[in-house]
Design a protein around this nucleic acid. Structure first.
Length: 415
DNA sequence: TGTCCACTGGAAGGGAGGGCTT
DNA sequence: AAGCCCTCCCTTCCAGTGGACA
């Protein structure tokens, strides 16, 4: 019996038509051979970088665009192409890619650059320990070891500035005056324009000698991108004709995010595959949309700090009691009882007020400031997710499991 | 028209923790 | 190791406020 059952699962998969030819093509990290609708940006960047081939230092570049507008992939594409051509003409070019979301301190950025050359110089900077000055001196030494062009790509540069200030940029943008052999130029990538305000004007003017803007894709452009990738990712005829347009339309709604579009297409395929369906249909796309949204929401809630989780649970309880929308005071009193229950020192109402705003920003709840006249000014708080989902997530959280057994009387007494 | 509620949200400052410097 | 500094999280204090109600 057991074997028959298992057997039938295997049979089902054996006979199901294969969906994916090459799933890698749909990953964010994949660099396609062609980038639709980015010709203008590619040409701009090429113009900016082309002096390298004549032995001149190219301008620094500042690249701006929202997430999923193809900034990183375009830069990678252009720099790889530049390297290919320059190799052919015997112009030594090194491109160093630094993701500042991960490498987010001055020290680590400099260390990363020095370590890029460790094969050649034999110098390796440890993760911590050296004074920053020394790393910088070492950097100059290894970079200047011979005549060459060094292009430093600082992706998510806004994160670096916000965390560590603009000292790194200050030193990197004027490093050329201290080098004899090598020339350095910088490509800064950001999805936040406001971060420029934090920059020293001298750094800013030096960094944005040239600027390249990546506007969001519209639905038609997203469709072209998806079609191009789908050709390599899926077997022929497994995609219903409505699938790609729907993925494109849904992603266009989310500020034209190509990453989101690719995720949708990939997850749709995965769902179809798991169902053993012969084709990917629009129904699978809707399911994928729901899954992605749920997954991100779940991830957000899971990584919430403890007090925010307890706070969220008090809103869940109020919801189950039919007492939403509630105001700050109500939520705070339930929160305090819950803290009491699990032996947690409660935060002050002032702090909770901020945490409520944070939950609102994350889209988990809605908090609107209203004035109830005689009855004061407060926030009106609503839940944006079903209580069931929250409980489900807390089920696996050892600190919060005990909350799941708590019920609330209509007088808001915990039972 | 004024009062007064139930907060809001700014400001200042404490303390823990982490990284850099000495 | 010790000192310093910065950042983050949080508390305390408080002036400010939109509008129902008298």
């Amino acid at each position: 019996m057991e074997e028959n059952y298992l057997g039938s699962i295997f049979e089902k998969y054996l006979h199901a038509r294969k969906i994916f030819k090459n799933k890698e093509v749909l990953r964010h990290s994949y660099t396609p051979k062609e980038l639709p609708h980015r010709r203008e940006q590619i040409e701009n960047l090429a113009h900016i970088l082309v002096p390298v081939l004549r032995g001149e230092t190219p301008s620094n570049v500042f690249v701006y665009g929202k997430t999923g507008t193809g900034k990183t992939v375009t830069i990678k594409f252009v720099t790889e192409e530049l390297k290919r051509i320059s190799d052919k003409h015997d112009v030594p070019v090194d491109v160093i890619y630094v993701n500042c979301e991960i490498v987010d301190t001055q020290y680590r950025v400099l260390a990363n650059i020095v370590n890029y050359f460790k094969g050649e110089s034999g110098v390796e900077v440890p993760l911590v320990g050296w004074p920053t000055d020394e790393v910088y001196a070492k950097l100059k030494e290894v970079v200047d070891a011979r005549e060459r062009f060094v292009i430093i790509v600082l992706d998510e540069i806004d994160k670096l500035i916000k965390k560590s200030g603009d000292d790194v940029l200050y030193s990197l943008t004027r490093i050329n005056s201290e080098l004899v052999n090598a020339k350095v130029s910088i490509i800064g990538i950001s999805n936040d324009l406001k971060f420029k305000d934090y920059l020293d004007p001298r750094v800013l003017s030096s960094l944005s000698e040239e600027e390249v803007v990546f506007p969001p894709y519209d639905a038609t452009q997203l469709r072209d991108i998806l079609l191009q990738r789908a050709k390599d990712a899926f077997y022929e005829d497994v995609l219903d004709s409505g699938v790609v347009p729907l993925c494109a339309a849904l992603a266009a709604r989310e500020h034209g995010d190509a990453r989101r579009a690719l995720d949708l297409l990939r997850v749709s395929g995965e769902i179809a595959e798991r169902e053993g369906a012969p084709k990917v249909t629009e129904r699978h796309v809707w399911k994928a949309q729901e899954k992605i949204e749920q997954d991100t929401m779940e991830e957000v809630i899971k990584t919430l700090p403890l007090h925010s989780k307890v706070l969220l649970y008090s809103i869940v309880l109020l919801d189950e009691n039919g007492e939403l929308p509630a105001n700050t005071g109500d939520v705070y009193s339930v929160y305090k009882s819950l803290c009491d229950y699990i032996d947690l020192e409660p935060l002050t109402q002032r702090r909770i007020s901020d945490l409520i705003n944070e939950l609102d920003m994350l889209g988990i709840i809605n908090a609107k400031v209203v004035s109830k006249g005689r009855y004061g000014r407060t926030k009106e708080i609503r839940l944006n997710i079903t209580p069931y989902k929250v409980k489900n997530i807390y089920r696996h959280d050892s600190q919060l499991q005990s909350l799941l057994t708590v019920n609330m009387s209509p007088q808001r007494r915990l039972l």
